[in-house]
Amino acid sequence: MPTAPKGNSHTEPKIAPGGPRHVAIIMDGNGRWATQRGRPRLFGHHAGAKRVREIVEACPDFGVEYLTIFAFSTENWKRTQVEVAGLMSLFRRYISKETRSLSEFGVRVRFIGDRVRLDDKLIRLMNELEAATAHNTRVHLTIALNYGGRDEVARATQRLAQDVAAGKLDPEAVDEETLPKYLDTYVLPDPDLVIRTSGEARISNFLLWQSAYAEYEFIDTLWPDFTKAEFGSLCAAYGGRDRRFGAVKT
C-alpha cells in the first residue's frame, strides 16, 4: 500500500454527495474463480485477499469511510478441513504482512464475530492489529471473522439478559435502540450499501440487524475480479437511489 502520514494528520476524505458512507461486502466467488483456472480453491482465496487491498485503498476516493468485509462465516467451518486450515493460515499471514501498511495508509481495523473457536495465535494477531491501528481515522475497516448475524444477535441477547438479571437494565426500557448497543458493531454506523459478488442473490446471515435499510447490489463479478472501477460505479449508483426509510415523499 502507498504510505501516508499516520493517524489524525491525514486529510479526511470528503463524502461524495449522496454516496454511501458505509459499504459492506460479501466477498464471494474465490473458489469458483480458482476452479475456472484449474487451480485449488485456496489459490482463489489468496487472490481474493490481494483484492481487499485495492478496495480498501479506493475507499477515500469514493467518500467511503467505513468498509466491512465478510471474511469467514460461522457456517464456513462446514468446509473441508484442508480449506478451513488454509484459510486460517491465510488470515494469520495477511495480518502479519499487512499491519504496517494498513497503519501507514490510515486504516483502523476492527474484527467482529465470535473469537472463541479461533486459535490463540490468530486471536493474538487480531488484537495486535486492532491496537496498532487504533489511532487511525482515514478508513474504518471491519473484518467479519467467524461471524454470523444470528450468532451475533444471540450473543448480544445473552449479554442484554445478563444486564437485566444483574439489575443494570430495566426490561421495560428495552426497545429497538437497546439491542444495537450489545452487537459486535456497536461503534459503527449501519451499512448504507451491501454488495455481494459472484452472482448469488442472498445475504448469507450477514449483518442481519444492521442492514434493515441498506441498499443491496448483487453482481455477477467474482470477488478476485472486482475492481476499483466497479466499486466506484456501485457507489455512484447508490447516490441516485431514492431512500425513504419507510416514509412517503410529499
Results as ranks from 00 to 15, higher is better:
residue 2 P to T: 14
residue 3 T to L: 07
residue 4 A to R: 15
residue 6 K to I: 07
residue 7 G to W: 01
residue 7 G to Y: 10
residue 13 P to E: 05
residue 14 K to D: 01
residue 15 I to C: 00
residue 17 P to S: 05
residue 21 R to F: 00
residue 24 A to E: 01
residue 26 I to L: 08
residue 28 D to L: 03
residue 28 D to Q: 04
residue 30 N to E: 00
residue 33 W to I: 01
residue 35 T to V: 11
residue 45 H to N: 01
residue 46 H to I: 15
residue 50 K to W: 00
residue 52 V to R: 03
residue 58 A to P: 12
residue 61 D to L: 15
residue 63 G to A: 10
residue 68 T to N: 08
residue 73 S to M: 13
residue 75 E to L: 05
residue 80 T to N: 13
residue 81 Q to P: 14
residue 85 A to R: 13
residue 87 L to K: 09
residue 89 S to H: 10
residue 91 F to T: 05
residue 91 F to P: 04
residue 93 R to V: 11
residue 97 K to S: 15
residue 97 K to C: 03
residue 103 S to Q: 06
residue 105 F to Y: 12
residue 108 R to I: 02
residue 110 R to L: 06
residue 111 F to N: 04
residue 113 G to P: 10
residue 113 G to C: 01
residue 115 R to Q: 12
residue 116 V to D: 12
residue 117 R to K: 14
residue 120 D to A: 15
residue 122 L to K: 15
residue 131 A to R: 09
residue 138 R to K: 12
residue 139 V to S: 00
residue 140 H to M: 15
residue 143 I to V: 14
residue 153 V to R: 03
residue 163 D to E: 09
residue 169 L to N: 13
residue 171 P to Q: 06
residue 171 P to R: 07
residue 171 P to N: 07
residue 174 V to W: 00
residue 175 D to R: 03
residue 176 E to I: 10
residue 178 T to F: 02
residue 185 T to P: 11
residue 187 V to C: 10
residue 189 P to W: 06
residue 190 D to T: 05
residue 197 T to L: 05
residue 203 I to K: 05
residue 206 F to Q: 06
residue 210 Q to L: 14
residue 217 E to R: 13
residue 236 A to V: 08
